[in-house]
Every structure is written in structure tokens, then in C-alpha cells.
Simulated scan of single mutants.
Amino acid sequence: MQTKFASLLELARTISRLPTARLVFQVARDPGNVEQIFKHFTKRHPRYFIIRNKTLGAALVDLTRFPVGDQYLASIKGRNSADQKVRRARARGYRVVEIDRNDYVDDIHSINNSVPVRQGKSMSDSYLQKQHHYLAERNYKYYGTLNGAGKLVAYGEVGMWGNFAAFNRIIGVRNNDGIMYLMVSEIICRLIDSGEMDYLMYDTYFGASAGLKSFKTALGFSPYRARYSLQ
């Protein structure tokens, strides 16, 4: 009981020290879609009713800290760092491209079914059932990591909501080649170099597994208190 109380106290202290990020949804990007996601982000939290859904501990990279993508890459260097994993993936022939998911239907299905349990949870039916056609949302970008033979081994869906972008889905086959580090870092660099976004969100910190927190931290994400508005 004392250990649990100490953990809750430390969590409260962490929350009180969170920096604030002002995240703006811009309706013009895709009116119906943007308004729907704004409502999802700002609805009451399913477990903690007194707070909003994605307000405390939003996992963000402040893209404005880096004039160019190369400076971001320099910030994730170090011993056993994300940068080392990125360089490993590149050395093994992987590359990140924007994709039309309809060109990779079989590969996507294979990726989704490659591991039955992720982050301690069984894969949902929305992943396991094969989808034969994908519609491209106008405010989304779709990325894939290809191996040297051109096979898709990871993919990510990024919503462009206003002054920030957010991962909707990110998943890959499980190997030790650094493919997920390569994809996330490449997306971050492209967003920085475009100058269009202030932040990139990767869901939240609180409630994530230790492994996923470590992955996010290595790539430069940190927890924020998010303040949302709709324009």
C-alpha cells in the first residue's frame, strides 16, 4: 500500500511539472474528420472522468526546437541510442517512403498478423482482418519502411490536424534491424524540414508499457499537458 501511494504521489508531482503545448485543430484541413477527432481528443477520459482524454502526458516532439532535420538527428545520438538503430537500418538497406496503401495490401496484412500480442495486448480484429481497399484521407500522410527487395516491413499513418501531426497507426514486423526507429525519425525529419507543424504526437506516456515509453523517449518524445482548440 505504501509503495502504491508513493507511486501515485510521484505521478502527481510529474503531472504538476508538465510543460504545456497548445495544439490547434484546423477545420479547413478536412472539416468532418477534424471535428470528429477533436471531439475524441477532448472527451472525458474513460478511466479518469475529471480529465480530458489526451490532455495529461501527451507524448510530443516539439519540432520548432530544430531548424532542420539533421539537428534533430544529432539530438538522439549517444551510446545505444536511437541514432545507432537508425544507422543500422539504413546500412541494411531499409528506406522510408510515402505510400499508397493499396499497393501493399498483402504486405500490410502480413505485418498486422506477424505478432499476435503487442504491448501485452492481443491484436484487435481491425488489424487481423484483411482489408482489400484503403481510402486516403485528405489530411493524412501514409509512410512505409521498405527492405532492400522493396517489401513493406512497417507502415505508419499520420494525421495532419493543424499546428500538429499525430500518429494514428504505426506498426511493423518484429526484428532487430531498427526499422521502427528509422521510420519515426524519418517522419520527424520531414515534418521539421517542411516547417508546417509545431509538434508531432505519439499518443500518451501514462499507461504505456515500459518498452514503449523507452522507445518514445529515445526518439525525443516527452510528456506534455496538452491544451486543444478548434479553428
Rank of each mutant, 00 (worst) to 15 (best):
M1S: 13
Q2H: 08
Q2F: 09
K4M: 13
K4R: 13
A6E: 15
L9H: 13
A12G: 06
S16G: 05
S16P: 03
R17Y: 06
L18Y: 09
L18K: 08
P19T: 06
A21I: 05
V24R: 14
V24Q: 15
F25D: 03
Q26S: 14
V27N: 12
V27E: 15
A28F: 12
A28R: 14
R29M: 07
R29P: 10
P31M: 12
E35R: 15
E35K: 15
Q36T: 15
F38Q: 07
H40N: 10
T42L: 14
P46D: 10
P46Q: 10
R47D: 13
Y48K: 05
F49W: 12
I51K: 13
N53V: 03
K54E: 14
L56N: 05
G57Y: 01
A58Q: 06
A58K: 09
A58G: 15
A58W: 04
A59K: 04
L63E: 01
L63P: 00
T64E: 10
T64I: 02
F66K: 03
F66C: 04
P67V: 06
V68N: 07
G69M: 02
G69I: 07
D70V: 04
Q71I: 02
L73D: 02
S75L: 01
S81F: 03
A82Y: 04
Q84T: 11
K85A: 07
K85Y: 11
V86C: 11
R87S: 05
A91W: 01
R92I: 02
R95C: 07
R95N: 09
V97F: 00
E98K: 15
E98S: 14
I99S: 01
D100E: 09
N102P: 06
Y104D: 09
V105H: 04
V105I: 15
V105Q: 10
D107H: 10
I108C: 05
H109L: 03
H109S: 12
S110I: 04
S110Q: 09
I111E: 00
N113D: 06
S114H: 05
V117N: 06
V117S: 02
R118K: 09
S122G: 06
D125G: 13
S126Q: 10
S126K: 10
S126Y: 14
Y127A: 07
L128C: 10
Q129T: 14
K130E: 03
Q131S: 13
H132A: 12
Y134N: 01
L135M: 09
L135G: 10
E137D: 14
N139L: 08
L146I: 02
L146P: 02
K151R: 14
K151H: 11
L152Y: 00
V153F: 00
A154N: 02
Y155F: 12
Y155L: 00
E157Q: 10
G159I: 11
G162T: 08
N163I: 09
N163P: 03
F164Q: 04
R169N: 13
I170C: 11
I171W: 01
G172V: 00
V173N: 00
N175H: 02
G178S: 02
I179D: 00
V184P: 04
E186L: 01
I187F: 00
D193H: 05
D193C: 06
G195T: 09
L200A: 05
Y202S: 10
Y205L: 11
Y205N: 07
Y205H: 09
S209D: 07
S209F: 00
F215T: 05
K216E: 09
K216I: 02
L219R: 09
L219W: 01
G220I: 09
G220R: 01
F221L: 12
F221G: 10
S222C: 07
Y224E: 12
S229I: 11
